[in-house]
Write a protein that binds this DNA or RNA. Sequence first.
DNA 1: CCGTTGAAACTTTTT
DNA 2: GTTTCAACGG
Length: 700
Amino acid sequence: MKKTLTSIEDLLAGLNEPQKEAVTFISGPLLILAGAGSGKTRVITHRVAYLIASGEAPEGILGLTFTNKAAQEMKNRVAHLIGYKWHNPPFLSTFHSFGLWVMRRFANMLGYTPDFSVYDDSDQVALVKQILKEMGIEDRRFSPRPILATMSKLRMAQGDPGELKGEGKWMDVVNLIYARYREFLRQNNAMDFDDLILYPLRLLEEEPVRKFLQGRFHHIMVDEYQDTNPPQYQIVSIMARKHRNLCVVGDDDQSIYSWRGADVRNVFLFERDFPEAKVVKLEENYRSTQIILDAAWHVIRENTLRKEKRLFTANPQGERITLYVATDEKNEARYVVSKIKEMSKVRPLSHFAVFYRTNAQSRPLEEALSKEGIPYQVVGGLRFYDRKEIKDIIAYLRLVENPNDTLAFRRVINTPKRGLGERTVERVLHFCEQEGLPLWEGLKRAEVPSAQRARLLSFVSLLEELQAASKEMPLSRFVDHLMGATGYIQALEAEGTIEAEARMENLRELVNVAVEYDHVENGLREFIDRASLTTSQDERKEGLRVTLMTLHSAKGLEFPVVFMVGMEEGFLPHALSMESLASLEEERRLCYVGFTRAKDLLFLTYAKKRLYYGSHRTFPPSRFLRSIPQRLVKREGKTPDTTPFTQEEWRVGEPVFHPAFGPGRVKALEGSGTTLKLRVRFDRVGEKLLLARLARLKKG
DNA sequence: CCGTTGAAACTTTTT
DNA sequence: GTTTCAACGG
């Protein structure tokens, strides 16, 4: 094993000083404040490799990332660094996958069986809809998504109480739904995403589980720490209590998930719980040009709720940022596409990304791209596993695995059509409820008309046959068999439409994925779990195509050329985020995240009018544009544009403060083009000529 | 029980 | 402009 390891010197070569510090500080708590593009992933992967090279057992290392894809990439990079295939790899995953792993092992301690189902987002919506119907609530104010959002938020914030605390009639109803929701999950041996965080946390209070986890993981690392929520923090902090080797990496300027319960104050919690923690700041940016970094800084500096810091780079100044004012959303899309087309002569398509605030904004871009025949991928649209046909087959699999899953049962009982409608389903489930019987028995014994009874019985024998088959053949063959045995494929074939053809193609793809689990222990379960926990982020493919995605999805990525469209009030910042300072500042961070994804070129666009809810409406240019100094921007296009950029960010006579030179006053502005120099007279050291971007000056 | 039809609601961001 | 859902007739 030793000779295949990369030497420690090799691991540290090419890292700057703070990076080296972060990589080599492996004993004790560590907080890494990593600015955008400061080589964070590099530090994390090198740190894992360094730990292993220093003799730590790989399986004792836990790394928690934001997406499965990020985890996978880390695995690959670490393996590459170490140049060694281990059979006890480090545990690199998302919080939810980790929580699932814990729960599969200890489910029985909370009254679940290990074959429990995991309800993903669309399952949750379906369930709440069903509960609303059950309870006879028709009031439009009670729609599933806001209810789920409230339940999740309060539950996370209040430490998983039996009843949610909150004021008002709305909350009372939410609590009624909440009670039924939780009861339903239990009865169905199912957990939702929040359970995968909160249940492991609860189990960590139990001695055996805590001992097991603390004993297993000697080193814990958390990526994107600014986007973790309090229970997530609790989990890692309890696990790390024994060895105290907890390393968290984050950037408060990139915190964009507070609406999901993420709390930047976790940084303070960390400092409170681990007062001996070492703090390393990574402030050198290796990604972007100076101009992009300058613009980004001018946008983010206006936030009041942040720690002042400024990234620096040795990269070239680069091109100015391009602003294009479009007549409408179609014109905007055409502009973006024409630019991509032009630049694609000298760059591969994989260099281009287009960011927007809301998913709905992708449409005009998609249309323009297809019109020009440019390949693209939309990240964050409909997941593969959310397609109807895939969900149907997965529901069958889930029912085979967990016969108590009535949500899955409802989905498949009449797909394809078997003459078993709403009425019959209700009778069966009601019967089960009254007699306290498992679904299985209810199907056989419920009182229904004789025609339905025969159909129910044949459905039961179908399931029984499937259960037997699942144990006899490799997973991919079983999935294939299931699609035929249930009549699903035949029904699709009978349709004979192009759409049905596409669905069948997707199902073939599903079988291909199943092949990966053919010789895996508990392959069926792993396969189903993957369907629940895979996100559209994870489905990002490498290849020669343009990438389209929301700003949220863009976090953690980088592209040589970035377009940010829809730079309008109401979109960025979003209309629903303009109420409070806190949410407005989050929108600003979103803008900052977008800018700092760009390596070479950044294009900003907005439209004079935009199709919205079916009619054209006009929105003013985004206030964030105003924060960018004029000199960093180049305008393109014929449309008259009155975007009010900042003329100069520094005014003559303005008082400033420099960390080294102390207080002073701007005497003159010098420099030409995009380079701005400040002549400043300092009280203590006299006159200095400073590059504005490197001055690290504070106003006031 | 099933498919069609027309109106009404609908868009923030996602593990 | 698109998706969802209730109502109705076969």
